[in-house]
Amino acid sequence: MSFSNLEQLYRQVIMDHYKNPRNKGLLQEDGYHEVHLKNPTCGDDITVQVKVEDGKLVDLRHQGTGCSICCSSASVMTQTLKEKTLDEAQNITNNFYELVKGNEYDEDLDMGDSPVYQGVSKFPARVKCATISWKAAEQAINELKK
């Protein structure tokens, strides 16, 4: 293991999302459904809001504290899933879970910036950091489907 793996992990895109997070801050408006998740082992703590209209994710927001991988991934997730239908969002999310584990994934799906997280697969201890916001969004969507 070397610093080139680290550089791979902390690619510029990730650092950019960490320093300048998109869609950050929760909204107190109607129509947002919220899920709060914590990773008790490392203290990552993230809240995700989703807004669905006509079966489409019209907005996603996030807020929380955690490491750079966790916080940047929340930003990337909100960008990637915005304007997607609920089914598309689920497919993209599942695809993301595969790519962070270093498994084969569908490169034809519109994954936004999220493939930069492939570097995480070399650091299995960090997979949870990269996926926690995606899990929160997934849970929010599933709760809305009920």
């Binding site: 008790p40 490392c42 203290g43 490491c67 650091f123 960090r126």
Partner: peptide, 21 residues
Amino acid sequence: VHPHDAATIYDAEGICVRAGH
């Protein structure tokens, strides 16, 4: 630097330190 990010640096150098609560 978040402790979790730091721990990964140590890991890459073969150094086991604990990060967390």
